[in-house]
Design a protein around this nucleic acid. Structure first.
Lengths: 335, 335
DNA sequence: ATAGATTAGTTAAACGATTTACTAATAGGA
DNA sequence: TCCTATTAGTAAATCGTTTAACTAATCTAT
């Protein structure tokens, strides 16, 4: 790789000092039109772009934010990231995205990397692992905000999430109202706030109907279509005789439905289904699937705004929780 | 934000020079066990992490690569990114991901940003916009490899893509063999190699059967479910009387199918469908949809390996093209 | 005419690491 | 004993910017 062009080169060619070049670039001092123009033309000629490692080193600030998520190919997370990106662009920020794929050691490495790359702040959807290491950053007032998932052990970190307790409660209530008493709950990531809160909601709804909570109805599996169909198989194998299913992500929902059909069971007559998160195929699958959703776009945009607040004011604090809503289609038995 | 801990602080506390600390961290000189241990313990005590802006500035290298893609919520691209990430992790690299969302000005800004953040190289799936700006980087031997899409105007950039010509040809041939003569082609991004190559394949297949190419059968739309259903509506409005459809991405395929059903047309009897890219719901939609696919995982992993080669050898060059394969289900009329 | 303001530009000290060239002390070999 | 190697560590230059403090020239108002 050839030597990069530096500000010094530009300065030399334009017969000015490096300081002047810097001032032209950053509009940080009044420079005569004449010098400004020659400098600009030299910059253009060499396609010069300032080295931002040097810039960051000096300035301790970059218009760049990091986004660290733990699971990717999930339509909810994808949509949320998309919204964060959009909002960041609007506000003149660049975004660096990293997917930790539920690997908490990698998450820590990543946060360190981004931190030392001098992003101005980080939006984090944490893994289920130990995130005590975050404490170090909160002590330093490095701006971090949690999105989607949170960890209540970690204090003083703003967060914006969906109201997953309410979500679990409402979805279960909906099925209970249809007369179901044995409701399977299929999820993927244990020990994360989203799952925990939904399970709390699920239990409280059962209690409302004076129904006992049965451990066997809770099935954990991989967040893939295969994971979903395996989970259904387990419910069958355990002879749970469940008549309804609440599935926590899109791929698993698809897998669960395909398995139910394979078993020659009819949705919603034999087994009713509610899935979390709206996805493109929800209304084209047979039968169209009823979803309970969270406002992914609002969550994403808000998260970025909260980060911005935190960047501008180290004492900023807020916990924002957005409510779920239901998209009723045929799989829950309403029609 | 409080002052960060620097190597100097560590050195002072451990009663050694900064040079020694650096050597301990990087294993770049033999240091006695005693000093090494005290240094290490001080580092641990303060949770010290070297500032990589400074490091990059000095070293001109970081174990970090950038990935710049132009469209996200596409299952093919998602899967490819996933593979790149995995391979990068295996090789001890960190990855910084940016989605340009088909905005070519933003793409240029992003590449500049990543370049100046001193990533060691970039994997790029370019937008359809003008990418002459890349020339500057190739001249400097900055490692860039194109993945998925390429631009033949830009010389000397290695690439790994699917064989989209073959893909267009095979899918079309498959439909032609079933006796279809009027085949709609629904796509989303104009002026990108993937689309162009598939259209070439489509035309050549028609020619093979001595059929004329009809401009009206080509419909462009948004890469969403709505875009797909709007495209079908257009084909109907234009009274094209097509009997088969080849759709270029997952969301559009889902939308197209739902529109066809809405119109009370039967798949595959009235209209046969082949969609590009395998996705979770392909085999659960009614009828299960026949897909022609590209090996997303291999493409991703290979792309990273090619980037590594390019990083280690500025003169490295290769164009890798992976073949498509078909997943035959019911929507094409084979059963 | 002259003090004070304004304008246009420069000098040089940071920022936080890495790394080359150096020193000092000890060990080994003849 | 003297010379050379080896070991353990350090001083200082360097990467490419930004920015506070400075100078010099021109302008303004009295």
């Amino acid at each position: 790789m050839k030597k990069e062009i530096t500000m010094k080169d530009i300065a030399k060619e334009a017969n000015v000092s490096v300081a002047t070049v810097s001032h032209v670039i950053n509009n940080t001092k009044h420079i005569s039109d004449e010098t400004r123009n020659t400098v600009l033309s030299v910059i253009k000629k060499y396609n010069y772009v300032p080295n931002s490692a040097a810039k960051s080193l000096r300035q301790q600030a970059t218009k760049t934010a990091g986004v660290v998520v733990s699971s990717f190919p999930d339509s909810f997370v994808t949509e949320m990231i998309f919204a964060i990106e959009e909002r960041a662009k609007e506000m003149g920020y660049n975004l660096l995205l990293v997917n930790t794929n539920e690997d908490s050691a990698y998450e820590e490495k990543t946060i360190n990397l981004l931190h030392s790359k001098m992003v101005d702040g980080i939006i984090l959807s944490p893994t289920s692992g130990d995130i005590q290491y975050l404490q170090k950053y909160t002590k330093d007032d490095f701006p971090i905000v949690m999105v989607n998932r949170y960890d209540s052990q970690i204090e003083h970190i703003p967060r914006v999430t969906g109201d997953n307790y309410q979500l679990g409660y409402e979805a279960t209530m909906h099925l209970l109202k249809h007369g179901h008493k044995k409701i399977g709950f299929i999820y993927s990531y244990p020990n994360v706030s989203t799952t925990n809160d939904r399970i709390r909601g699920y239990k409280d709804a059962l209690a409302q109907y004076q129904l006992p909570f049965t451990e066997d109805y809770l099935i954990q599996g991989y967040a893939t279509a295969n994971g979903g169909s395996a989970a259904v198989q387990q419910l069958i194998d355990k002879e749970t005789e469940i008549t309804a299913l609440f599935v926590q992500n899109d791929s698993m929902t698809i897998g669960a439905i395909s398995k139910i059909k394979e078993l020659n069971l009819v949705i919603p007559d034999d087994i009713a289904v509610i899935g979390f998160g709206d996805f493109a195929s929800s209304h084209i699958i047979e039968p169209p699937v009823t979803n309970i959703v969270l406002p992914a776009e609002t969550i994403g945009r808000t998260a970025f705004d909260v980060l911005l607040n935190k960047i501008n004011n180290p004492y900023y604090m807020s916990h924002i929780e957005l409510p779920p809503s239901m998209l009723i289609r045929k799989s829950c038995g309403c029609f």
